[in-house]
Nucleic acid binder design. Sequence first.
RNA 1: GCCCGCUUGGCGGAACUGGUAGACGCAAGGGACUUAAAAUCCCUUGGCCCUCGGGCCGUCCGGGUUCGAGUCCCGGAGCGGGCACCA
Length: 854
Amino acid sequence: MTRYNVQETEAKWQSHWDESEIFQVTEDPARPKYYVLEMFPYPSGRIHMGHVRNYTLGDVVARYKRARGFNVLHPMGWDAFGMPAENAAMAAKIHPAEWTWENIRNMRSQLRSMGLSYDWSRELATCSPDYYRHEQKMFLDFLEAGLAYRKESWVNWDPVDQTVLANEQVIDGCGWRSGAPVEKRKLSQWFLKITEYSDDLLDALEGLDRWPDRVRLMQERWIGRSEGAFMRFPISGEPEPLDVFSTRPDTIFGASFMALSPNHPLAARLAEDNSDIAAFIAECNRLGTSEEAIETAEKRGIDTGLKAQHPFRLGIELPIYIANFVLMEYGTGAIFGCPAHDQRDLDFARKYELPVIPVVAPRDADPESFSVGDEAFLEDGVLVNSDFLDGLGVEEAKTAAIDRFVSEDRGRRAIVYRLRDWGVSRQRYWGCPIPVVHCPSCGPVPVAASDLPVVLPEDVDLSQPGNPLDRHPTWKHVDCPQCGVPATRETDTFDTFFESSWYFARFCAPNADEAFTREAAEYWLPVDQYIGGIEHAVLHLLYSRFFVRALSRCGYLDLAEPFAGLLTQGMVCHETYRSADGKWLEPSDVKRIEGGAVVTLEGERPVDIGRSEKMSKSKKNVVDPDHIIAAYGADTARLFMLSDSPPERDLEWTEAGVEGAWRYLNRLYRLVADPPIPLTPVGAGRPADMTGPGEAFERLVHKTIDGVSGDLERFHFNRAVARIRELTNALAELPVEGPDSPWLTRFGLETIAQLIGPMTPHLADEMWQTLGHEPFLVDMPWPEADMKLVTDETVTVGVQVNGKLRGTIELPRDASRETVEGEAFAVPGVERAIAGKEIRKVVVVPNRIVNVVV
RNA sequence: GCCCGCUUGGCGGAACUGGUAGACGCAAGGGACUUAAAAUCCCUUGGCCCUCGGGCCGUCCGGGUUCGAGUCCCGGAGCGGGCACCA
C-alpha cells in the first residue's frame, strides 16, 4: 500500500514555498487588500498548543482570502519585552536579551515547521532598538500633544525584592518570590490620557460589527460610563467641604454615613495625628491593588470622628468613616452611604449599626411599613421619607435632587468613567526605556528626538534586588537636555502593552526609517481580521484602539480603528492525570488500556483521570507541538485543531482525535496516489451523459464547494472539515464501473485538494501535483460552485401530527399546498395518528414541514 | 464581590433567521482480509419498551410563549473566564 511520507513531503513544500518567496507581498493598489493578523507571541521558549491553534486559524483565513483574489498581508513577530526574561535571568543566570533571542530562534523554527503562509521578510522583535526607538518618539509626541503626563499612583511593593509586583505576583498579600508581606506604595509614574477618549472609545464600539458581542460588552463595562452628580458636604469644624460623587443623588435623604477611601488626602491628614487611623490605613494598604481583592474583602471601616452636614436637612450630621471598599480611583474617592439602596453600604451599616432609612419604596408597597432587611432595594419605585422628592420616581428624583444641588451651588451634574488613565511606567529592566531625563532644576525633561533611541544597556547586574538600571554605574548619568547640568535618566521602562499597541502598523513597513510609512499604513490598515485569545478582550485591544487615536492626533496616520474584524479563540485543554500518590502526570507518561482506563507507561500503575483543563505546566497536561509534528506532521495538527471544535470554544486535545485526522490525511493521499479507478487526463471535458449516481455526486461536489466557502467566510472550520469528509465518503462510494466515474473521481479529488488547501497546505500541494498539475495550489483561484447544481429539484419534507414527527415525504421543490397536503395525509404514520380525530388546522411551511393539528 | 460566557449521545461536536435533534469525527461492539498482527474495508451504536409494523421518552433543572422550542422569555443549578504591573 502506498504510504504518505509526511516528514519528507512537508519539508519539501516548505522549502519550495520559501525559495519561490510566494508569501512575500507588496502594496498593489490594483488589487483588494486583506490584512490577517494573529496576536504575536511572547517568546517564552517553545510554542504551545494555544499558538498552534491561533496560527492555524489565521493561516486558513490568509490562504483562503488569497485564493479568493485578495492581496494578503500575513506577518509574524515577537512581543519580546517582559517579566519572564528577567525571572529567567535571575533563576538561570542568563541575560534577558540572550534568553529572549535564543527563544525567538527556537520558536521561529517551530513556527516554520507548521507551514504557515507568513511573509517572514517582515518579522520584527519589539526588544530591538530598531523597533522601540519609534515608540520613544511616539511618547515624545504624546507628551507634546498633552496625552502623556506624570502623577503619583499606588503600586504593590515587595520590601525584600525591592520591586513592584504585578497583582498576579501577590499571593495572599505576600510577594510570590520573597514571601514578604506586600505594601502599597505611592510612586510618581507616567500616564497616557486614554480617558480623554472615553466617549469615543465607547461610542465607536457600535461600529465594530465584526467583533464578538461579548468583547464589545466587556469593553463597554470596562469604560463604565455612569451619570450622576458631584456633591459638596460641609464638614463641621473644618474649613474644606467633602466632595463626593454619586449615581444615586435621589437617595440623598437615605444617607446615614460618609466614607472616604483609605487613600483619600483627608484620610492621610487624619492619620498624621491618630495612630488608630494610621494603623487602619496601613492595614487596608496590605490588601493589594486589585479590584478583586478590595471587593471580596470584608467591608470594614473606622470612624474618623468628623461629621458631615446633610445638605438639605438642617442640623443632621453624618459620621465620616474611612472604609476599605471605597476606591480612590473612581469619582472623588469619597461617597455618601445610603444603606437601604446599596448592598455594600448596607453590609457596612449593619456591621457598624448605622441607620437604614428606606427612601425608595416599591410602587405596590405600603410606604409606612416598607423596610429593608439584608438585601438593599435597588429597583425603581416611589420616593418616600425624602422631603421635596416624595412621590417622585427614581429618574425624576435624580433630576430634581441634582437641580436643587445646582441651584444651591452645592454640586453639579456629572458623568464619570470607570476607565482610568493608562499607567505606562514599569520599574523593570527588560523593557523600552522611557526617553526622559530628570533634572534637579528643570524637572522631567524629554530626551531630544535627535538623541533617540535611548538604548537599553546590556551590561547590567540582575543578581541583586531592585531595578538594575537604577544602580548601573554610568547609563543613567547624563546632562539635562535643557540646561546642561548633571541629571539622571528615567530608569522606568514602558509597560509591554506599549509595544503591542502599534506593532500591527509597523508590519506594514517594517524597514522604514520612521515607525511606518503613511502610504503603506493607509494601504494595509485596518487589520481586516485579527485573531487571538479572549484574555486580551479588554486591555490590549483597548490600548491599541486608543493608540491609533493618539497616533492619528499626532499626525502619524488617519485611522479610526485598528482591527475591523476580531475572532477570539478558545483555550486548548487536555485531560489531567494523577498518580496514586497525588502527583500530576504528563500525557506522555501514561497510556490508555483496554476498557478506557489509564495507567502509567512504566509499571502500569493506576492513574486518576481528572477533567479536561487548560493546558498548563502546573497540571502537567501539556502536549508539545513538536512531538505531534514530528510524529504526524503539521497538517495533522492543523486539521485536528480545526475539525473538532468551533474556534471560539475551548478545544479538547485528544490523542484519538489526532489519530483520526492522521488517518484521514493518509486516506486522501492514497486516493490520489493510488486511485480506485484510472482517472481521466488533466483537463478532460465533462462527459455529456451522466449516470444517476454520477449526477448526484456532481451535485454534491458543487454543494460542498458552496457550503465550505460559506463555512470559511463565517469561520465555521469544523463544519467545513465535516463537509469535505462527507464528499470524500461519497467519492469512495462512486460505482467503479460507472462510465462517468473516471471523470467524476478526478473532479472530486481536485475539488477536495482545493477546498482543504487552506487547512492542510502541504498535503494539498502534494495532491495537486500528483494529480498532474503545476505547483502551487495556493496560487489557484478558489473553485466556484454552479448554483444550478447546488439546489436540488426535490425536497424532503417532515410531516408532523401535533408537532410530533410521523414521517417524511419527497416532493418537487415549491410544490402547491394541495399537493403537499395530499401527500402528507397519505403517510401511513399520519393516517394512524389522525384516525378518528377532527383535523383542526394544517400548518404548511413550504419545502420544510407540514404540521397537522388534531 | 462585580462583570462575561458556556451546558446537546459514552466523548468532541452538527442543526442557516423557531420547522425532520444527533451531520462529521472519536470511542465501543460485530464482521471481512491476514498464518498472525498492524493498516485497510463493511455493518451496528441516544435511552427504554416491542408482537420487529412500531411505541414512549430525550438538548443542565423548573416554569412560560407557540401549530411547533436545542433555538425565544422568566426563574434556578453547575462549570469556566476577566477584574487595570502576566502577556
